[in-house]
Amino acid sequence: MQDVLHNAIERPGEISHIVWDWNGTLLNDNHANLAAVNRVCAEFGRDPVDLEYWRAKFRRPLLACYEELLGRPFTEAEWERVNTAYDSHYLDLLPSCDLAEGVIDVLTSWPATGRTQSLLSMAGHDHLVPLIAERGLSDHFTRIDGRRRDTVHDSKAEHLVEHLRVQDIDPATVVLIGDIDDDGHAAVEAGTRAILVASGLMSRDRLEATGHPVVDSVTEAVALLRG
C-alpha cells in the first residue's frame, strides 16, 4: 500500500510545504453543509437532497451550482437570500463539526520533519481566522487565509497564487491538499501539485477525473509525501 501511495505523486521528496484546505478536508462538516443546503431548498420550495446527490452536483462557481439545484436564475437579491439562509444554518451547526480523523497527528508530525504548512480556505477570512484560533490550531500554520474578496471565476486559484506570493514560497515545492476539483484546478493554475481527499463535498469519481492523486483521508495524503 505504501509503495502505491508513493508512486501516485512524482518526486514527493521535493515537497516542503503543504497548503491545507479547511472545509471537508481538515474539518468534517458534510452534515452541516448538507443541512444548510436543504435549508436553502426549503426557502425556495425545493425538496431536500441527500449527500450522495450533493456530492455529485456541488461545484464552483457557486452561483451556477445553486441555480442548477433550484432550477432558476437568481436576481442579486435572491442570491443574497441563498447565502443568508445557508450561512445562518451552517453557523448554527458548526459547533457540532469535528476535525477529520488524524488531523492533529498530521498537523503535528509534518512540521516536526522541518517542513511547513499553511491554511487557505474559501470560507470568509473574518470567519475563518477566529474559528481556527478557537480550536487551538493557529500555531500549526505559517499563514491562515480565508476568502478576502470575490473573484470572477469563484475559484481558489487566484487566492492560492497570492497566498504563496506573500509567503515567498516556490510553488514547485508545494502541494495543496483539498476535497473538491477546484482545489486541483487551483494547484495547476498556481504551479503546485495537489492531493484530493475523498471525504468532503465531491465524489471520488469526480475527483479522480481531475488526474490528481485521490486518497481517503488526510493521513493517507501526508503518507504520499513521506519521500
Rank of each mutant, 00 (worst) to 15 (best):
179 D>N: 10
25 T>I: 12
136 G>Y: 12
188 V>W: 05
61 P>M: 08
155 S>Y: 10
93 L>N: 06
56 A>C: 04
139 D>G: 15
78 E>P: 03
162 E>A: 15
65 C>R: 05
190 A>L: 02
54 W>I: 03
116 T>W: 03
59 R>P: 02
200 G>W: 03
116 T>N: 13
137 L>E: 12
58 F>A: 10
95 P>Y: 06
59 R>V: 03
80 E>P: 00
115 R>C: 05
9 I>P: 00
5 L>E: 07
172 A>S: 15
185 H>P: 03
42 A>P: 01
166 V>Y: 01
194 A>S: 13
56 A>D: 12
157 A>P: 07
125 H>R: 09
220 E>Q: 15
139 D>M: 11
157 A>D: 06
73 P>I: 07
37 V>K: 07
176 L>E: 00
137 L>N: 13
144 I>C: 01
91 L>T: 11
74 F>Y: 10
216 D>T: 07
127 H>C: 00
152 V>M: 08
194 A>G: 03
77 A>F: 09
177 I>H: 02
38 N>T: 08
187 A>D: 04
159 H>W: 14
73 P>F: 07
135 R>T: 06
68 E>I: 05
52 E>D: 15
184 G>R: 08
105 D>M: 10
57 K>L: 04
130 P>A: 10
96 S>P: 02
45 G>K: 05
117 Q>L: 05
222 V>L: 08
56 A>E: 12
120 L>W: 10
195 I>Q: 09
111 P>C: 14
144 I>Q: 00
